[in-house]
Amino acid sequence: PTSAEAQMRELRFAEFGPNRGTRAAALEWLDQEMRDRSGGTLGLDITWGGALLGAKTAAQGLSDGVADMASIVPVYAPGQLVAYEVTDTIQFGDEWVGMMATYEFMTTNEAALEEQKKANIKYFGNYTTGPTQLLTREAPVTTAADLDGLTIRATGAFVPALEAKGASTVSMSQPKVYEAISNGSADGSTTYYYVVKAYKHYEVANYITELNMGQVLAFGIGMNMNTYMSLTPDQQALVDELGREFTAYVAEKMYNSRTDVKAELQEGIDGHKIEIVQPTDEFRASLVEIANADVARWKEKAAEKGMDADAVYGAFAALVDKYTAERDANGYPWEAESN
């Protein structure tokens, strides 16, 4: 091999999602940036669609070196990255604040770093789902009374919150939601704007209640620790730099996609429109309160793992406050650029 070929290294990246949509575009961007900035010595070889590692096996597979990098969801890997899961316990919907707080938390918090070392995973950067909304098929839901008696697909902290309002919840994988709403065995689902578009839920449901509740932040990219250690110091620095930029990049894209998708859904896609309704303040506030209380379950899990749960939670909450203040003072960085 020529010296140029010998120097080129393609990192095997396992992505469980399809090569479409915001996340895929962000990964393509990352690959390109990596190649450009490394002078062609570092790039990604992406396996899409979970053909190598599915969402459920990604974290373990990454830790074992099946892939050099992978998109991971820690909730599917019990006990492996519990500190990371703290980022899902606070109900707020701001993409940029959430992602930057999570990035800083995962790259500076002692407990989080310790856990990554044990898991043989180096945190790279973050995704987000954007704020949680409520999709319903037949009737708009703006109060607790509207929710009473409905069957809603829900996960995590939304299960106790919705059940407290008289809904029954079901769990099912995202690809099944279409069928379930279509035949009416579910009346709706907690969801995110981009999911409604990607999974075509506008074809079978008519309303979204804009709850703007919490986002999934324990959802990002990791690198196998051995892979990271095998990189040259320059390459490591590049990877660190790209991780933060990638997170900021995805934050901007997700923020914009939420606005765009919302407009598209209201406008109608293929003639299918979704009406967006606002919950009463009282309804939303009480859902947030119940969902936030669900942090108790995380704290129990963290304590079992020997973590100072309150301290870790406090550290993340402080970062959320920090970035909220920064946003309130300066606006979003991309707004500053365009001004």
Binding site: G149, T151, G166, A167, S168, T169, V170, S171, M172
Partner: peptide, 18 residues
């Protein structure tokens, strides 16, 4: 049980899929 629980009592079996 989960289908009946959901349909009749608005209470499916928790963690049934799992």
């Amino acid at each position: 049980g989960s289908v009946l629980g959901r349909g009749l009592f608005n209470k499916p079996i928790p963690d049934d899929l799992l």
